[in-house]
C-alpha cells in the first residue's frame, strides 16, 4: 500500500522542518514532540524510512539498543508507531530545494513540488543526501533526458504507441516491461545477463511475452544513442554473441536503482567538509544558527555513522530547537516514565 503524504504545493507553518524522513528524522519527531514542538518532514522518497527502507528493508540490524534484531523496514514501522501521537506532517516524493531566512527570523523551506513550509528551525537529517536515479554512462545521454530518456514513469499514457527500450534487471525494470508492453508499439528489454534480481513471476511473464513474439529481450548493453533534437530514433546494443545491432527506440528507460547525492543542501551557505555538515556537539547546530544537522549527514570529532548516534543527536538538537521556537519559555526536562504530562502527550495516561 502506498504511503499517503500531504498533497504537494501548499503553504504550511510549523515549529520545525525536518529534511529527511529516515530513522533519525523520524525519531526527531518524537523528541521534538515531547517538548510540544510540531514537525513537518520532507523526503524525496515516496515513503518514510530513508536508507533503511530504500537500501536494506529486509536486512537485519543488530545494534539498535533494546532491539536485538530488527530489519530496516521493521525499524521504520516501529518508529512510525512511536511518533504517531505527535501527528507529524509528511511531504513525500519531494526534494527540499530552497532554504531562505525570513525577515521575522523564521525559515522558509520550499520543495521542488512547490510546497512551502515556514518554521522556527530547520533540521537536516538527510543521511547521504537525496536519493536520485543512477544514470548509465552512455555518451550523449544528457541531450535526451526528459524528452526521450526517463528514469521514472509518471504518466503511462504518454508511452502508448512508442518503441520502448527498458534497461535493467530489477523489479522496476521488469514491472515496467509488463505494464508498458500492452500499450507500446514495441518493447525491448536489455540486461547484461540472463538472470534477474526480480520477482520470479515477473520474469516468467516477461519470458512468456518473448516466446509469444510480443517483445524482445537481449543480453546486451546500450552502446550508443541515435536521434536528433532530443528525440531518440534508435539505440545500438552490443553483445558478445550478436555484436552491435540497432533497435528502434522512441523512449529509453534505464532502471539501475538509486544513489545518494548531497543535492541542494550544498547551496544553502552552510560550511561543508567533504560533503558533510560540521556541527557542534552540544546542539548539533550548523554554522548557521537555527539550522541543525543530525545523523549520517553531519560530522564532528569522533562522529560514528550509527543510527544510535543519530538518536542521541536528535534529543540534544530538540532541546536547542525548543529555545529557538519558544523563546523565553522554560524548558522542563522530564522522563516519560514518571511524567503524567508526557504520558498524556503520548496518549497513554
Amino acid at each position: 500500500m502506498a504511503f499517503q503524504g500531504t498533497p504537494p504545493g501548499e503553504r504550511h507553518e510549523t515549529d520545525v522542518v525536518i529534511i529527511g524522513a529516515g530513522p533519525i528524522g523520524l525519531f526527531s519527531v518524537f523528541e521534538l514532540g515531547l517538548l510540544d514542538l510540531k514537525a513537518h518532514l520532507i523526503d524525496i522518497l515516496d515513503r518514510p524510512g530513508g536508507q533503511c527502507t530504500e537500501l536494506y528493508p529486509e536486512k537485519p540490524i543488530y545494534d539498535i539498543p533494546g532491539l536485538p534484531i530488527v530489519t530496516g523496514q521493521e525499524l521504520t514501522d516501529r518508529l512510525m508507531e512511536q511518533i504517531a501521537p505527535f501527528g507529524a506532517t509528511f511531504h513525500v516524493g519531494q526534494m527540499a530545494a530552497g532554504l531562505e531566512k525570513l525577515p521575522s527570523g523564521r525559515w522558509r523551506v520550499t520543495s521542488d513540488a512547490g510546497t512551502v513550509i515556514e518554521a522556527a528551525a530547520v533540521v537536516i537529517a538527510a543521511g547521504g543526501g537525496s536519493f536520485v536515479p543512477k544514470k548509465p554512462p552512455i555518451q550523449g545521454i544528457e541531450a535526451y533526458e526528459g524528452t526521450s530518456v526517463f528514469y521514472a514513469v509518471r504518466k503511462m499514457e504518454s508511452y502508448r504507441g512508442k518503441d520502448i527500450v527498458i534497461v535493467g534487471g530489477g523489479d522496476s525494470a521488469l514491472d515496467w516491461v509488463l505494464n508498458l508492453q500492452p500499450i507500446a508499439k514495441s518493447m525491448t528489454l536489455v540486461h547484461h545477463r540472463d538472470g534477474f534480481r526480480a520477482a520470479q513471476h515477473s520474469v516468467n511473464q516477461m519470458k512468456a511475452l518473448v516466446d509469444a513474439g510480443k517483445m524482445a529481450f537481449h543480453v546486451a548493453s546500450v552502446a550508443a544513442l541515435h536521434g536528433e533534437g532530443g528525440r531518440l530514433a534508435s539505440v545500438s546494443l552490443t553483445s558478445k554473441e550478436k555484436g552491435t545491432f540497432d533497435v528502434p527506440c522512441d523512449v529509453l528507460l534505464p532502471f539501475f536503482g538509486l544513489t545518494m547525492k548531497l543535492g541542494p543542501v550544498a547551496e544553502w551557505g552552510l560550511n561543508l567538509a567533504e560533503n558533510l555538515v560540521p556541527v557542534d556537539t552540544e546542539k548539533f547546530e550548523t554554522s548557521t544558527p537555527g539550522i541543525f544537522a543530525i545523523g549520517d549527514i553531519n560530522t564532528y570529532p569522533g562522529k560514528l555513522k550509527l543510527i544510535l548516534s543519530g538518536f542521541h543527536e536528535a534529543a540534544l538538537m530538540s532541546q536547542a530547537a525548543f529555545k529557538i521556537a519558544r523563546p523565553g519559555e522554560k524548558l522542563r526536562f522530564q522522563y516519560t516514565t514518571s511524567s503524567s504530562n508526557l504520558q498524556k502527550k503520548l496518549g497513554v495516561a
Partner: peptide, 11 residues
Amino acid sequence: ETDMLDMALSV
C-alpha cells in the same frame, strides 16, 4: 552479489 551487481553500471 551477482543480483546486486544488476544495480551497478557497466558490469
